[in-house]
Amino acid sequence: MADPLTLTTTPRGGHAVGIDVRGDLDHATAGELLEAATAVLGTAALRDLHLDCAGLGLCDSSGLAALLVIRRRAGEAGVRLHLDHRGAGLDRLLDLTGTLEHLTGDPAPPPGRTRDAEGVRGA
């Protein structure tokens, strides 16, 4: 059922490396991405890590956890993480979990019609 994950790492000149992520990022495959990205983060003088998500299929909670760990390790290495060509599914997941801004630097869209703790609905 699940698409197997394929990862292609390509130097992008200067101080950037791209990883093309194709297939499903789930419990079975998240570790592979984490390993590949961690290897790249060891590269000297790296400044930008691009994960190209155009070919990303499903991303489940394990996939999201892997992205968050990569983000942290990138931060520790002084590398900026880019999640390029994100599809609607990934954006929805990042938005729902409140991690969009943290992972991409983009501000999260306002939550629904924002209501504060005082807002009372219903009867």
Partner: peptide, 13 residues
């Protein structure tokens, strides 16, 4: 996983 977390609470009857 993140240092700080935020949330918005809804109230329903």
């Amino acid at each position: 996983m993140l240092e700080a977390v935020t949330s918005v609470t809804d109230t329903v009857t």
